[in-house]
């Protein structure tokens, strides 16, 4: 983290103007923060508690945040109707491999965009950024047909490769690389290092915070993705866990406990990851916005 801190900011004397005086202001501030705090947490508490509540309990005490009695039938329902471990494995393979490839490809691309001068650089950068503006639904049909021609439907290649780079990651790496002093690679170049060596030995080791950020943000996005795995796969054995859990939604499904259990299960890995790596999540987002 220390690297990112130096790379990003922290100045000792920030505005402390008038902080002493306005007590009312402070009270107002903490009230605002307090309300926000509660508002941010309650839906998740309710979701987890709802996954343990029976239908009758939920209906009779809608104002209650906690179960009057605990039932596991939501979780049992999920366990019985899905090849749970297989989906879990798929999720980790899909999100994990794709993230690893994305980090590699994005950082390579960003290295060229941030550190090399060549004709067409701005065009490339604009094209990459432009892809951020394309809603996924717009390209779904042509992409599907393309994957068919490649024979990649319902395979891991089909799931992974089209998602193995992200414009956002390239952008983030580029911003980060531009903040690394140019003297470093100049020096390496004088020592006879080529681009690959500079990228791999000089830039990447300095870019650990950016790597962590891109990896974490990508993993989260991929983990949460529903439509992509649903469209690319045709057998339930290939689905990811969150996508598989949507199979419980349907026109006539009213069992809240099962739906909420599904939502809780798909959230748990992300929540655990967030708990342990929150500084990377947050530092990552923070870096993106700074020039």
């Amino acid at each position: 983290m220390s690297t990112s801190a130096t790379a990003t900011r922290t100045s000792p004397g920030r505005p402390r103007a008038g902080r002493a005086g306005l007590r009312a202001g402070a009270a107002l501030k903490w009230m605002y923060v307090g309300v926000g705090f509660v508002l941010a947490l309650i839906p998740f508490i309710w979701m987890v508690s709802g996954s343990f509540r029976s239908e009758a309990d939920l209906y009779q005490n809608p104002a209650s945040l906690f179960p009057t009695s605990i039932t596991l039938h939501g979780y049992i329902g999920v366990w019985q109707q899905l090849p749970f471990l297989r989906l879990l494995l798929n999720s980790f393979v899909f999100a994990g491999v794709t993230t690893a490839l994305t980090v590699l490809f994005d950082s390579m691309c960003a290295y060229a965009l941030a550190r090399l001068r060549f004709v067409g650089r701005n065009v490339c950068f604009v094209l990459v950024i432009a892809t951020l503006m394309v809603p996924f639904q717009v390209t779904l049909i042509p992409v599907f047909i393309q994957l068919f021609h490649l024979g990649w439907l319902n395979t891991y290649e089909g799931l992974i490769i089209p998602r193995a780079t992200s414009a956002f990651g390239i952008f983030l790496f580029r911003q980060f690389f531009m903040s690394i002093p140019a003297d470093l690679d100049e020096a390496a170049r004088i020592d006879g290092a080529g681009h690959w060596r500079i990228y791999w030995r000089v830039i990447m080791p300095l870019a650990k915070p950016a790597i962590a950020t891109v990896a974490i943000l990508n993993f989260t996005n991929l983990w949460n993705d529903l439509l992509w795995p649903l469209v690319i796969t045709s057998s339930n054995d290939m689905l990811t866990l969150p996508a598989g859990l949507t199979l419980f939604g349907g026109q006539h499904v009213t069992d809240h406990a099962v739906l909420l259990a599904g939502a809780t299960i798909s959230l748990v890995p992300i929540a655990i990851g967030f708990f342990f790596a929150q500084k990377y999540f947050i530092a990552g987002v923070a870096t993106t916005g700074l020039k």
């Binding site: 393979v93 491999v97 690893a100 395979t155 891991y156 057998s235």
Partner: peptide, 17 residues
Amino acid sequence: LAATAIVALGLSGCSSS
């Protein structure tokens, strides 16, 4: 990377339906 790639290739073999 190598490990993930191996997992991916290994699994893709049994994926076709």
